[in-house]
Design a protein around this nucleic acid. Structure first.
Lengths: 228, 228
DNA sequence: TCCGATTTGTCCGCAGGCTTACACTTTTGG
DNA sequence: CCAAAAGTGTAAGCCTGCGGACAAATCGGA
């Protein structure tokens, strides 16, 4: 069962764990610490002094940044098979605090210490290269979000976000594209950098126009092109 | 002379080129393509199909992103000794176009092909690790700018930018901190994501309060703490 | 099944800062 | 050395969308 899971994980992360053979994966698996968590649970993954890399094996979670006034911003949504932790940890200096929270019913994740991970990267340079590309990809993604925040208005940012979501997790059906929903209006607002009320408004406009249906369980995008 | 320059460059980039000996540096130097450019010159560094990594040896330049309406955003300021190119190239999909422009009187840069660079990283895993950390650092930096754009108002973003600049290139003097200026109000506006007029206004407020002096050649921050 | 908590719906005033518009100043290049 | 271009100063109007306020709906747990 554990090996089964590892196999799965291995597939999801081919770009990174490609170069390891079964034995090495098994070894990494021993290194790794497994953990389960329930919906809503908060994971404080940036303990000072303790540096871990996390791999989300099952479920989804959000990485939230809080400033001194208590304003929250969702920095990233971590999906099945994605790495997080070291990468996200904020610059250190600032007065913002960061935590992760479970969005789906349950979540399975494992972690390995930063130093173990680095040892692995040194042993398998090919893997270091893959890892670098992975980080580079995130850099591009965030850079995209950044320029969107400047170039686009709130509504267009929401459209952008929904299209991206549809692309990565959407399921095509006769009635449109179905997204299994694990986000509230508030969550989405914090992702696209808007007020919750503004987000609600846009959703309702689309609901009335009949191009989208939002519910807590799922979102149906009936017509992607009319989404604007 | 060339070796002198390489030595210098080596120092500036210790985190990356640490592990190479003189011979290897010389070799990299042969691999590399040198180029000089004048102030104002535009470098189209993202040719499709051609993947290069650039190292800025001397001077400063800005990386600009342009959207379909012609709005410009400065994605990054590249300073002496910094790498750019592959890292910055936008996600590919979008309809934004990117270019670099020389800010200082003259600029010296060299480039090596992505594949040569990757070969080097594979040969020196320690270097791959350093490079990974470098990319990670940029990720953090951009993530910081992103959350600033959400949490902070325009004026505070300008303060943040100036403080950062002062930290990286400021020169302490009796009259305050001196910054050799290579940016116009427009440039700064495009960095902090504000309108040019807004930026001008803030500078003038500070000028009147006597906490800062702006000119095209230099910026003197007389009192960092009163800058708000 | 019921109660409290969370999420969603709606309205509206207010403000930050973008736009437009133009005058003035400094730099650059022929 | 002069004209054109680039950069700076200043002001007014307008618009997006934030924030507060509350009601209604939905969920989750005891």
């Amino acid at each position: 069962m554990v090996i089964e899971e590892v196999k799965y994980w291995h597939i999801k992360n081919h770009q990174l764990f490609w170069f390891l053979n079964q034995e090495q994966i098994r070894q990494l698996c021993i290194l790794a610490n497994f953990k389960k968590a329930q919906k809503g649970e908060v994971l404080e993954f940036v303990q000072p002094g303790q540096h871990y890399i996390y791999l989300l094996k099952k479920g989804n979670l959000k990485v939230v940044q809080v400033d001194e006034e208590g304003n929250e911003l969702i920095v990233d949504i971590i999906k099945q098979g994605e790495l997080f932790g070291e990468l996200e940890s904020s610059g250190g200096k600032s007065n913002t605090y960061e935590y992760a929270q479970v969005l789906t019913d349950k979540v399975v994740l494992c972690r390995f210490s930063k130093s173990d991970f680095e040892r692995l990267l040194l042993e398998f340079p090919q893997m270091a290269l893959s890892y670098t590309k992975l980080v580079g990809l995130r850099l591009k993604k965030i850079q995209n979000r950044y320029s969107n925040l400047f170039f686009l208005k709130a509504k267009d940012r929401l459209v952008f976000f929904l299209k991206e979501w549809a692309e990565s997790e959407g399921e095509k059906m006769e009635k449109g594209i179905k997204l299994t929903n694990y986000l509230t209006h508030k969550d989405i607002a914090q992702i696209i950098c808007a007020a919750r009320q503004t987000t609600t408004q846009f959703f309702n406009e689309w609901e009335n126009e009949g191009v989208l249906h939002y519910s807590r369980k799922e979102i149906i995008i009936k017509d992607l092109h009319r989404l604007k």
